[in-house]
Structures are given as C-alpha cells and as structure tokens.
Design a binder for these strands. Structure first.
Length: 491
RNA sequence: CGGGGUGUAGCGUAGCCCGGUAUCGCGUCUGCUUUGGGAGCAGAAGGUCGUCAGUUCGAAUCUGGCCACCCCGACCA
C-alpha cells in the first residue's frame, strides 16, 4: 500500500475517493450507492449540524419530524414535484417476508403481504409535510409555520459518489407556511443568506448566491435560490437551495387559512435544504495532496500535541510543562489532543494528523524543554515555526482564527482566478475544458441553455443576485441579453 | 440501461496466455533495538483464488451461466 495520496492534479476523482477513505471520513457500504459515515467524518457533520441548527433557531425555526414513508396518493398530489422525482424513488410494495419453500434458510417476499397502496420512501418531504399542514392551519393566527426537519432521504441515482451523491443521504429540510407572498419570499431569501453565511463563516467556502433558471429549478417551486461553490478542479458544487413554492403545495394539498378580513386563501410556502453534500464541498474546497484541510470551526480536534521522548522520565518532564498549556487552551474552548501513544513514532503521527486535517500541530521534545520553546505547525499552509512556551496558548487561540480566515481567502482567490468573462462561443468552448466559472450573456431561453449543455456539459449554475445590468449578446445565440449568468460544469 | 474493466489473506497485488493447491508488499501478532517527518532486525499467524456448473487424472488458470464492485456514458434540484 502506498503511503501517500494520489496527486490532485493527476486524477481529481481518485484523489477525492482515497482521501475520504484514508482520512477516515466514510466508506462505501455493502448497500448499493450508500455510504457509511465513519466516526471522524460524522463528528465533522455534527459540528455542521449544530451550527446550522443554531442559525435556524435564531431565525425563529423549530425542529420536528415527519414519516419516512409517503403514501403514493399523497406523493402524486403536487404533479410537477411528483413528476420531477418519480424516476428516482424507492417504493415499498410489501410488508412481510416468509421462508422460501424451495430454498432452505432463504427468505422470499410474501406475495400475500402486498400493500394496498405503495409507500414511497421520501426523496424530499413536501408531500407528507403539506398533507399534515392542512390539518394544522385554519386561521391567520396559525401562521407562520416555521419548521425544520433533520432526516435521511433516498434518491435512487444511477451513479453515486461519496458525500456528493449517495442513494441515501442525511440533510435538513425546512418547510414553512406563510399568510402572504411577500413573507414567503422574504423567508426564501433569508434562508439563502443563512446558508451563504454558514458556508463562508464556518466552512470557509466562498459561495455565489443566485437564482436557478427554469430548467434547473426545484420541481414544484416558483423560484429556486441557490449557493454555488467552486471546487479545486474548477467544477461547481451546489451547496444549498432555498425554494419559493408560491401556493403550489397549498393548492395541491388544499391548505387554506382565513384572514383577518375573513377571506379564505391558500397559504404561501417555502422549503430549503442542505445535505451531507456539504462535507464533499468542504473536502474538495480546501484539501491538498497530504490530506484534509479543515477550517478550525469545524475541526473535531483543533490542536494535536506530539511529544518526542525516550522513556517515561522524558515523557513525564514533557507532561509537566505541557499540561498547564493544555489547560489554558481548553479554557478558550479549544479541543486539544495530546498524543503520547507509544505505538507510533512522531513522523507517523505527523502524517496521520495531516491526513485528518487537524489545523495546528505542536511538537515538543527535550530540545524545546531546554530552550523554553515549542514547535507550532500549521496544516493549511504547512509552515512551521518555533514559539516561546510563554504565552503560546493565546498565540494558538489567535492563530486558529487566522487560519479560518486564511483558508477562506485562499479559496476566494482561487475562485477569482478561475472566473472568466467570456464573450465569444469559441472562447467558451476552450475555457470550459479548463474549468472555472464562465460569466456570460445568455438570451434567457431554455433552448439555448439546453443546447449549450448538450455541446459542452456546462450548465447555468445561477443568475447571480447581484448581477449588474449590462447590455450584451448571448454567448451562443447572439440574441440580446441584459446581464451575465454563471456557466460551469458541475458535480 | 449501453460501453469498458476488475474480482486471489484486513488492504493492495503477482500468477492466468502455456492447467500440477498460490507470489510479493503493507497491515496484524511476538521479541529486541528505536523515537525531531510514515523505524530496523528476527520470527509467526492469516486463503472455500467472487459464485455455480462444465472440460480434465488434476482448475486461480480453459469454457459457460450468474453475482458483486469500479470507470465512462445515459440520469441527477
């Protein structure tokens, strides 16, 4: 077994798969297209969950839980939504197995136990939730309903990739109901801002905020907002979506309320979601050929201390000096691991913690004890320096913040270096092969969008919220356009 | 669902063309020496060669079926 990872530049997919496995984040399971998230990977996800959940609470939302199964009749109620997901649904048709009379020790599906009505395993929960909201909402006094659910969903994709697209995945889905269109639109926008803030402040991943085109819109939504991030291979990754549902689901499930004025009207809805795909974004945005690079705010361990010693006496001497420093670090809320496992040598540990993305490593041996110094190494830029022991805890505390910033800045610079204004079709075809975001004029037609996708595999990632008005001509059709949109190849 | 590939110890592999019960590395275990960038030496354990059938005195190897996984498409909010 080779000790290093494959090189990012040689085969990005292979590098990604190896990194996910070697850093102990996840592995493929025996179940087709499904993934086992391992404890280390899950502890990162938990940090994401907690941060997002706090942000949802701050914006007035509460958590609830709805069933995994959606009766087919409910699922098909909102036609566009049902149609959009129909091709990727797992369906429960029976509720019992029995011994196979022809094959001892084996089981078969009991044909007697066929369900009257099939149950769809939720690919998303709008149907089951809106069918419930119908019973919860009568009056304007019942609104708004601001609920989030943490759940697993199943989408039977033909091809899967760890974290980015798995058959079953974990996510959160917010489902809100409002008395006015304006309020629902404001909610849609607000939650997009929450996702963008989370991506940038916690994950250190800069994102573009924008509208999806009609082609890329959520099935059943009036408008889909999204955040799009750039990975290190120049491809785009949709990291979160927020949908304005209009009155579509309210109409499909007959959810009406009586207003102050006594008028009966359908409620206005939103839904928004982000998934374990964020883990994929985190990995692909920052990591390098040595392994994972984690932003301090999401790192399960902030600092690892590796003692370098011979024999118990030296170890005790190191401990005597390091324990007070660890105490101080802990008092700042920093998670520190002191790795005195004698089974591995220092070099091995260095490589292992780099693979796992621990932001800061400190090494301390006899040499340092004598000089009153300690070695501090940064994972993000791989620099090492020797610091005086005195005041090192405060230094580390500040350094973690600096690393959080530095990773963001690096990713932002990368995105800017790989974002191009493209005005001709020849340039487009050339640049799309090299990757990156292409800012282009587009005539606004689905036909053009589809043609470009067919020819180049590039899709419109979003129409940026802050796109400036600028007269131009469509990069493909030459028809007039008023603003630039973002084209890229995507995961 | 199309096109290609792979299946041999926990992981990665050699052997297959040309049939004779399996190679090497990593990891694991034991012991000693080591410890400032993935330690060294010595010894040991670990295998229904994906599966079912066929050919053969004899199959990891040849033939056929099946299964699983990977890659490229199609698909994908």
């Amino acid at each position: 077994m080779s000790k290093g990872l494959p090189k990012r530049s040689e085969n990005y997919s292979e590098w990604y798969n190896e990194l996910v496995k070697r850093a102990d984040l996840a592995e493929n399971s025996a179940v087709r297209g499904c993934m086992v998230i391992k404890p280390y990977g899950y502890s990162i996800w938990e940090k994401m969950q907690r941060a997002l959940d706090d942000m949802f609470k701050e914006t007035g939302h509460t958590n609830a839980y709805f069933p995994l199964f959606v009766p087919k009749s409910l699922f098909e109620a909102e036609e566009k939504n049902a149609e959009g997901f129909a091709k990727e649904c797992a369906v429960v048709t029976h509720y019992r197995l029995k011994a196979d009379p022809n094959n001892k020790g084996k089981l078969i599906v009991d044909p007697e136990a066929k369900l009257e009505e099939e149950l769809v395993v939720r690919p998303t929960s709008e149907a089951i939730i809106w069918s419930t909201y119908k019973n919860w909402i009568q009056s304007y006094r019942d609104l708004p309903i601001l609920i989030n659910q943490w759940a697993n969903v199943v989408r039977w994709e033909m091809r899967t990739r760890m974290f980015l697209r798995t058959t079953e995945f974990l996510w959160q889905e917010g489902h809100t109901a409002h008395s006015t269109e304006q309020e629902a639109l404001a909610e849609t926008k607000q939650m997009l801002e929450v996702y963008a803030k989370f991506a940038e402040e916690w994950m250190s991943v800069p994102v573009l905020k924008g509208f999806k085109t009609a082609n890329e819109r959520f099935a059943g939504a009036e408008e889909t907002l999204c955040i799009e991030a750039m990975m290190q291979d120049g491809k785009a990754l949709q990291a979160g979506t927020s949908h304005f549902l209009g009155q579509n689901f309210a109409k499909a499930f007959d959810v009406k309320f009586q207003s102050k004025e006594g008028k009966l009207d359908h409620v206005w809805g939103t839904s928004w979601g982000a998934s374990t795909r964020l883990m994929g974004a985190l990995i692909m945005a920052h990591s390098d050929d040595l392994g994972l690079v984690l932003p301090p705010k999401l790192a399960p361990i902030h600092v690892v201390i590796v003692p370098i010693y011979k024999g118990d006496e030296e170890l005790e001497a190191i401990k005597a000096v390091i324990l007070p420093i660890m105490q101080e670090l802990k008092s700042y809320g920093i998670v520190v691991k002191f790795d005195d496992n004698d089974a591995f040598r220092p070099g091995y540990k260095f490589a292992e913690y780099e693979l796992k993305g621990v932001p800061i490593r400190m090494a301390i041996g006899m040499r340092d004890l004598a000089s009153g110094q300690i070695e501090v190494a940064r994972r993000d830029n791989l620099t090492k320096e020797t610091r005086p022991m005195e005041g090192v805890a405060v230094y580390i505390k500040d350094l973690l913040n600096e690393i959080q910033e530095a990773i963001y800045t690096k990713a932002l610079n990368f995105r800017e270096e790989n974002t191009f204004k493209i005005d001709t079709w020849d340039e487009f075809k050339e640049q799309i092969e090299k990757g990156g975001f292409l800012l282009c004029h587009w005539d606004g037609s689905s036909e053009t969008e589809e043609k470009i996708k067919e020819l180049t595999k590039a899709t419109i990632r979003c129409i940026p919220l802050d796109a400036a008005d600028e007269a131009g001509t469509c990069v493909y059709s030459g028809n007039p356009s008023t603003k630039r949109v973002v084209f890229a190849r995507a995961y």
